[in-house]
Design a protein around this nucleic acid. Structure first.
Lengths: 252, 252
DNA sequence: TTTATAATGTTGTCTGACAAATCCATTGGG
DNA sequence: CCCAATGGATTTGTCAGACAACATTATAAA
C-alpha cells in the first residue's frame, strides 16, 4: 500500500495512464520485475489492462522519464539496471524562515554524518578533509567568500561517513543554502569575526573525526550548525531580501 | 543469455520527442514562458515543429513528469506555478548492509525530528501521536504485524516537527524500510519480546515530546533506532534473504 | 443584468497503419 | 560442426484521423 500522494493534487485525477504507471512502478519497486528484465510488449500490456497502446506508451513514458525503464526500438522496454526513484518537491522559497528549516535538516544530517565519519573515515578521506579546510583558508586569504570551498568541506564530511544516502540528500539541499551562506559571508562588518569562528568550528570537527571520537565529532558538528543559524540571523534583513533575486539559474 | 552491455546504448539524442521537450524546457527556464502561462495547444506545437501530435504529447509528458507543467483536460497545459526539483537516486538493494545504511539516515532524521517535535508539536499533533500508538497496539492484538501502523507513527513524529523537509525525506526512504521492518516482525520466536520493546520505546518518545523535553525526546528516538538496528540483526539470515523475492501479492 | 444553453476548443483515449530497428531461425558454405 | 548471411517476424517510434470528456466562450433567453 503506497500512500504518499498527499502533496498536492491540482490536476491529479483518474488519469488512466497514471494508474497503469503506478502499477508498473510498484511491480518494479517490489522487485516483482527485476533490473534488466524485459517488460511485456506495449500490445501485451494494453491487452492485459484493457487499454489502448497510446495509454500504455504514455505510462511507459512516465517510467522512462522517472529512470525506471529504458526502451530500445525494435527490442522492447527493460527495467533499468539501476532503478531510481525521485524525491520531488517544491523549490524552497528564499525566506529566512524557509532557510532555517533547511538548516535544521542539515543539522540532523551533518551531526550524524560527522559521528559516522569519526567511526569509519579512511586515511584518504581524512586527508581530503584537511585539504578542504586548507582550501577555505586559501580562498579567504585572497579575498574570496569561500562559499564553494565551505560546501566542499561539508561534502567531504558526508563522504567520510561512507553512507551515500547522506551525501545524496546533503548535496541536494545544499543547492538551496548556497545563497544563504553567501549572504552571511558578504556581510562586511561581521565577516572577519565570523570567518574566524567558522574555521575554529571546522577544526574542532576535523580533530574529533581524526581522533575517532564520535561523540565529540557529533557535538562539534551540532555546535557549528547552531552557530551557523545564529550567524545567519545576524545578517541584516536587507541582505536577506536580496536572496529573492539572486537566483537566475534554474537547476534541472 | 548474456546481457549485452555494449549495445545497451540508451539511444538517447536521436529521440524526436526529447528534442522537442528540450526546447520547451529551455523556453520555460529562460522565462520565455512564465509560471501559470498556457502552452500552445498540442496541435499548434505539432504544426510548429512539424511533428505529429503523438510526439508532442510525449514531449509534454516529459515536462509534466519533471514537474514543469501541468495539464488539464479540456483546458490546456500550463507552466507549473511552483517549479519542482527532483532528487533522483538508485533504489537501495535489499541487503542487510544496505538496510542498515538506511537506518543510519533514518536515525539522523528522526532523532532531530523528535527534538523539534518536543519543541513545537501542536496539541492536535500530540493527539495524533497517541492515536498512532494506539493503532499499533490494536493491530498487534488482532495478530497483524503492525508495520503500516508503525510507519504511520514515525510519520506522525516527523509531522510534529513542523518541518516539511523531514517528512519528505523520511517518507521517501521509509518505503525501502517497509520490507525490512516486516521481517523483524514476522520472526515468530522473537516477536513478542520485540513488540514489547518497541511499544515501550515509542512510549518514551511520546512522553518526552509531550513534556516538551527535547533532549529526552532525542535520546529516546536515538535509543529506539539503535535498538531497531539490533533487532534487525537478530533476524535469521534466511529471513533476510527472503527480502530478495519479497511478495507475490496481486499479479496486477 | 443575469442565467441557461449551445458552440467551440483542448486534452485524453481509441484505432489503424507504416517506418525503423532488433531479434531469430533457417540456410548455405567453409 | 561452425559460422556468416539472409530473410521474416517482433517491437518500439511516428504518423494520421476520429471520438469522448471536460472546459471555455459565445449566444440566447428571462
Amino acid at each position: 500500500m503506497i500512500t504518499n500522494q498527499e502533496t498536492q493534487k491540482p490536476t491529479r485525477g483518474a488519469q488512466l495512464s497514471e494508474q497503469v504507471a503506478r502499477q508498473l512502478t510498484h511491480a518494479i519497486h517490489t522487485g516483482e520485475m527485476r533490473p534488466g528484465e524485459r517488460l511485456p510488449t506495449e500490445a501485451a500490456l494494453g491487452e492485459r489492462y484493457g487499454i489502448s497502446r497510446s495509454v500504455v506508451r504514455e505510462a511507459i513514458s512516465m517510467l522512462r522519464n522517472a529512470g525506471l525503464v529504458t526502451s530500445r526500438r525494435g527490442s522492447g522496454s527493460f527495467v533499468a539496471e539501476v532503478p531510481t526513484v525521485a524525491l520531488r518537491l517544491a523549490i524552497p522559497d528564499p525566506s529566512l524562515q524557509s532557510i532555517i528549516r533547511l538548516l535544521e535538516l542539515r543539522r540532523a544530517l551533518e551531526v550524524e554524518a560527522a559521528r559516522l565519519a569519526a567511526q569509519r573515515r579512511t586515511p584518504s578521506q581524512l586527508r581530503r578533509l584537511r585539504n578542504a579546510m586548507a582550501d577555505i583558508d586559501e580562498a579567504v586569504e585572497i579575498g574570496a567568500d569561500g562559499v564553494d570551498q565551505d560546501m566542499a568541506f561539508h561534502r567531504a564530511i558526508a563522504e567520510a561517513s561512507n553512507n551515500t544516502h547522506f551525501t545524496a540528500v546533503i548535496d541536494f539541499y545544499n543547492r538551496f543554502l548556497h545563497h544563504a551562506i553567501t549572504v552571511t559571508r558578504t556581510n562586511e562588518s561581521l565577516r572577519e569575526t565570523f570567518m574566524a569562528q567558522v574555521i575554529e568550528e571546522h577544526q574542532a570537527i576535523v580533530d574529533a573525526i581524526e581522533q575517532g571520537d564520535e561523540d565529540a565529532a557529533a557535538q562539534a558538528a551540532a555546535r557549528h550548525l547552531e552557530h551557523a543559524e545564529w550567524r545567519l540571523r545576524q545578517a541584516p534583513t536587507d541582505l536577506l531580501e536580496r536572496l529573492e533575486d539572486t537566483e537566475t539559474d534554474t537547476p534541472v
